[in-house]
């Protein structure tokens, strides 16, 4: 597992440049451009299970969801940041990408530290120190447990339909 460390205000253009917004939408198309203008080594070297640690306001800017889709599809296990921008946070819930808002953990991290996550319990251990973060509310967990918003919506539509049939 590798930890990718970035600073504050990593915006959506840095995560995935806007000029590709209307030409790339599948995971394969997105991947080569992930973090292109921030860290050109990322797309080539990222591996399943890697973690991103960042400062405040991660994901600010556009509502484009390629950054979330891309990071999810390359297997990022979680993004740990001091804070996330609102639309990015929502998009992550909708795709089942794990975001952890925990400024203490970000501050505690130094290069080479191992990170252990317990998402159900809301705890994170960084270099031997354990911190807690708030567990998501039920309504949101239902979306995650269904496998993301589209899967959740499909279940909902089926329920509507079977109700109508009765």
């Amino acid at each position: 597992m590798k930890v990718w460390r970035y600073g504050d205000d990593v915006n959506t253009d840095l995560l995935f440049p806007g000029k590709y917004t209307y030409t790339c939408s599948t995971a394969e198309e997105i991947k080569p451009h992930l973090l292109e203008d921030l860290d050109p080594s990322f797309a080539e070297n990222v591996k399943e299970g890697d973690i991103i640690i960042a400062g405040k306001n991660f994901g600010c800017g556009s509502s484009r969801e390629q950054p979330v889709l891309g990071l999810k599809s390359v297997g990022i296990e979680a993004i740990i940041a001091e804070s996330f921008a609102r639309i990015f946070y929502r998009a992550a819930i909708n795709q089942g990408l794990v975001l952890i808002e925990c400024p203490e953990a970000v501050k505690a991290y130094s290069e080479g530290d191992t990170i252990v996550l317990n998402i159900e319990k809301g705890s994170i251990t960084v270099g031997g120190k354990t911190f807690s973060f708030p567990v998501l509310p039920e309504e949101i967990l239902a979306i995650r447990d269904a496998g993301g918003l589209l899967a959740y919506t499909r279940l909902k539509l089926k329920k509507f339909k079977s109700k109508e049939a009765h």
Binding site: S63, I87, R90, A91, Q95, G148, T153
Partner: peptide, 25 residues
């Protein structure tokens, strides 16, 4: 599904950006 949807606050609406998946749902 555009971050500047917040523009209509000028007209006393509550308006906000969401992602594409949510727009689909």
């Amino acid at each position: 599904s555009d971050s500047h949807t917040c523009t209509y606050g000028a007209l006393n609406a509550l308006s906000s950006g969401i992602d594409r998946t949510e727009a689909a749902a």
